[in-house]
Design a protein around this nucleic acid. Structure first.
Length: 232
DNA sequence: TAGGCCATCTGGTCCT
DNA sequence: AGGACCAGATGGCCTA
């Protein structure tokens, strides 16, 4: 084989290997998408947002272990969303059925800051987070058997402004996937009624934290739950 | 139309 | 020498 042909052939081989390598990397990213909050088959998080959310998620779970108790949902979600883009933040909030208004406005009062937060290159494009203490959520079902709904439909990251109150489109059809255990990301259910009414969610009195609602067994220890996250 | 995201190609570097 | 890894360049697609 002539030298030029040989070089060309080797270049093509290298290109094919590189493609496969990147496909492997993307497969790994897809696997990661499935274990971070807000998995959607139809509206995937971007690579960078997946990595950021995963980092925040790991950090938030670590904080739960370190402190030894669960934070309130709002704090948990706030920490999850730090450094994420506005659309991704909306997506996470939507997945968790948070009132977006209370999520985007309000108090200061965070537990602490995830490592690296504030140094991300998109931080200057982010709205500053100010949180209010109150949040209200509405859960249609509190069944402990509730399992991991995924957002299958075109879940829009675009918030709807209804009477001056941020809301989130809830067009997604929910699918229930039993592959995932730690329910804070999967147990939320769409609010009933017109969209405008859904801008304020109601939390059942007996439930304090949405990610408590779907625990398969209250006898599960927190460590069990966290282990389940990484072993399922 | 601009910007974001992505897949692919490519050449350089490092390691075996 | 050849493969893995990396980063820059490029073009396509999609959305606001």
């Amino acid at each position: 084989m002539p030298e030029i042909e040989r070089v060309k052939f080797r270049r093509q081989e290298a290109n094919a290997r590189e493609r496969n390598r990147m496909h492997g990397l993307n497969d790994a990213l897809d696997s990661l998408r499935k274990v971070v909050p807000c998995y959607s088959k139809t509206q995937k998080l971007s690579k960078i947002e997946t990595l950021r959310l995963a980092k925040n998620y790991i950090w938030a779970l670590s904080e739960i272990l370190r402190i030894g108790k669960r934070p309130d949902l709002l704090t948990f979600v706030q920490n999850l969303c730090k450094g994420l883009s506005q659309p991704t933040t909306n997506l996470v909030a939507g997945c968790l059925q948070l009132n977006a208004r209370s999520f985007l406005m309000g108090q200061s009062g965070e537990l602490s800051t995830p490592p690296g937060h504030g140094t991300l290159d998109n931080s200057k494009t982010m709205k500053p987070y100010n949180y209010c203490s109150a949040y209200e959520s509405f859960y249609e079902s509190t069944s402990p058997e509730c399992s991991s709904p995924q957002f299958e439909g075109p879940l829009s990251p675009s918030p709807i402004n209804y009477n001056g109150i941020f809301s989130l489109k809830q067009e997604a059809a929910l699918d229930y996937d039993k592959n995932y255990n730690y329910g804070m990301h999967y147990c939320a259910v769409p609010p009933r009624g017109p969209l405008g009414q859904s801008s304020v969610f109601r939390l059942p009195a007996e439930s304090h934290f949405p990610y408590d609602l779907h625990l398969r067994s209250q006898s599960l220890t927190m460590q069990d739950e966290l282990n389940a996250v990484f072993h399922n």
